[in-house]
Simulated assay, not measured.
Amino acid sequence: MKPISFLGPKGTYTHEAASTISDNLISYCTIPAVLDSVTNGECDKGVVPIENSIEGAVSQTLDLFVHKHDLKICDEIILPINHNLVVNKEVKLDEIKDVYSHSQALGQCQGFINENNFQPHFAISTANAVKSIIGNNSSAAIGNKKAAELYDMEILISNIQDVSNNETRFVVVSNEDHEPTGNDKTSIAFSLYEDNPGALYKILEIFYKAHVNLTKIESRPSKEGLGDYIFFLDFYGHRKEEKIHEILSQVEKTTATLKILGSYPIFSY
């Protein structure tokens, strides 16, 4: 069986998310590389981040779905993001002067960093941050449990993030989406006709009249001109259900472009 690709390196939160669905994993250094690995057949599936409860959408993932790839979302994984202060073994808190991590992790732990008067330093990933401090007892890294285990390091303090309900949503992509399970979600992307007042309202009204709940609405520049946007919607239901099929038919008639990104089971904690 072919491996599942994920945004690496090993020890990242995406690695942790991917580990919940398979042990046969291979890391790629960028989101485009992960998606390419599925498109060209190197991997059966890929796992990439799509949004964080604090930082918002991962714009690169959204843009690639629209502008480059015809892959489908076949599953989602929602991972609680618990940041930890990772150190070399037997290092004490008062020995630490510098802390390394990915920019998002540093931002999400700013209160803890300030409270302890640490000097923050950027790393390309939380896993690389942990790797970079090996043997340096005056430095710590912010990372997850998997990275600490991978590099034989120690978690000095757990859950140091400023906001306790920090979660990241990852999507699993494949060449086909998931068959209906009865508890599903569908993701779409669409653009509107120019100079059409109330166009977005007309789209949302279709869902309102059908009593279908939206779980997400997001917009991104279309890259075709200032003020021109692509809209992303997630909503309950599977594209193969008769009700959802009819909704999508109406949306297609009302939009300039419509792309179905996939239907997949709603993540259960």
Rank of each mutant, 00 (worst) to 15 (best):
F112P: 08
V66R: 08
S174Q: 14
L25R: 03
I73S: 07
H178T: 08
H238S: 03
S22L: 05
V130I: 11
D70F: 12
K259P: 00
A105Q: 11
P49I: 09
I260V: 08
C43I: 01
F6V: 06
K68L: 02
L71V: 02
I21T: 00
N114G: 15
T168G: 03
L106N: 11
S22M: 07
D36E: 15
K89I: 13
M1I: 13
S132N: 12
L192H: 09
L71I: 01
L192M: 12
P180F: 07
D234Y: 04
V99H: 07
S101V: 05
N159D: 15
E224T: 13
S138W: 04
T39Y: 15
H121A: 10
F118E: 02
H102C: 00
A57H: 12
T181Q: 00
N175C: 13
A189W: 08
S174E: 14
N84H: 15
I54N: 13
I134P: 04
N136Q: 10
P265Y: 06
T181Y: 01
Y28L: 13
L7R: 07
C29W: 14
P180T: 14
N24Y: 13
S19G: 11
S59V: 12
V163F: 13
V34N: 02
E194R: 12
I31A: 02
H15M: 09
S59M: 13
